[in-house]
């Protein structure tokens, strides 16, 4: 009941925010450029072609009409045609979505599995050698440029040691399409060869993306645990002789995680942003690579479509985090 109420309450904000996002993207695409049509048509277009395009895209109409048409089109799934692939942008984006989602989910999973326990250890043994080493790792993780880290990984693990493939998502055609997640699909059909290949291709991009994400998770978990360690309830639990491991890994961690969960939104933001450059380096056929190719080809509509879909995903994730936080913290207001 509480969860339903929470979800409803947060969902109210979803639509205004998406509307705002549409307005923002519309502003960037229709108002900022001096002449969006000339932009669309490319450098070699004749005046006649530009005039045709202007009428075709409705740029000759008042701005608010353009905006209404834009919103209507977007809600019908029409994001325009890609200049580069000559296909509907929505088809392009949806086709590449699973690749990016797979990469992001695995990265979040790995960074949480590593970041949370390491954050706890750093806090419990604060100011120890372990804490200092972990702090160095966090600081580095947040300071390193992900595209550079990606290149370093390629240089070392793929070129030098040849442990992993250099780039791409899989060798061969990949498993039969069920969900679009190669790891999952290959497991579902029992295609072990594809699974191994998909896995080995995932290692480096995931390592690149997970590093800063893990650093962030570690940082917030450490801070949360430190707050909890000095709390009255931990003093009480100690005074009542609860086992130390239960105090740390159940009572403290459960409280500290509330703070960490609120940062998952931030972490997803880091990852979505990271996918753009990481997919470019690893030639990973997802949304990020699509965006980079669109940049190279000045495929203007495609970039706006990409911004819209990533923005919407980000809003959805933050919505989910809000609900999750409400569920995890019984004190939070509904």
């Amino acid at each position: 009941m509480r969860i339903l109420y929470l979800m409803f309450n947060r969902l109210i904000w979803f639509f205004p925010t998406v509307f705002g996002l549409l307005l923002l993207v519309f502003t960037i695409s229709h108002i900022i450029p001096a002449d969006p049509v000339a932009f669309l048509a490319g450098d070699n277009a004749t005046n006649e072609q530009i005039a045709d395009l202007r009428a075709q895209y409705g740029f000759d109409r008042p701005l608010y009409i353009q905006f209404i048409n834009y919103v209507m089109g977007t809600f019908q799934g029409d994001l325009g045609i890609s200049l580069y692939t000559q296909r509907p942008i929505s088809d392009d984006l949806l086709g590449r979505l699973p690749a990016t989602l797979e990469l992001t989910f695995v990265s979040v999973l790995i960074s949480a599995i590593l970041g949370v326990p390491l954050g706890v250890i750093a806090a419990v043994y604060r100011n120890s050698v372990a804490d200092h080493i972990l702090r160095l790792i966090t600081v580095s993780g947040l300071a390193i440029a992900s595209f550079w880290l990606a290149i370093l990984f390629q240089l070392f693990f793929a070129m030098e040691l040849q442990w992993t493939p250099l780039q791409g998502r899989i060798d061969g055609w990949g498993p039969d399409h069920i969900t679009g997640f190669f790891l999952l699909d290959s497991l579902l059909v029992g295609d072990w060869e594809s699974f191994g290949s998909a896995f080995s291709h995932l290692v480096l991009p995931v390592a690149t993306l997970a590093f800063p994400a893990m650093a962030t998770i570690m940082r917030f978990t450490r801070a949360g645990v430190l707050d909890a360690i000095n709390s009255n309830y931990v003093l009480y639990e100690q005074a009542m002789g609860f086992p130390e491991r239960i105090i740390i890994w159940k009572y403290i961690l459960r409280n500290a995680l509330i703070g960490t969960v609120t940062q998952i939104g931030l972490i997803f933001g880091l990852l979505l942003a990271g996918t753009v450059v990481v997919e470019a380096v690893f030639d990973w056929p997802g949304l990020g690579l699509y965006a980079v190719q669109s940049i190279m080809n000045s495929d203007y509509n495609a970039i706006m479509g990409f911004t819209l879909i990533t923005g919407t995903m980000f809003i959805l994730i933050n919505l989910l985090v809000d609900v999750l936080q409400g569920v995890m913290d019984p004190r939070s207001e509904l």
Partner: peptide
């Protein structure tokens, strides 16, 4: 056993 000063903050808030 122990009885704390502040019963509100001495209970774990999330259980």
């Amino acid at each position: 056993t122990f009885i704390p000063q502040d019963p509100l903050t001495s209970f774990n808030p999330v259980f």
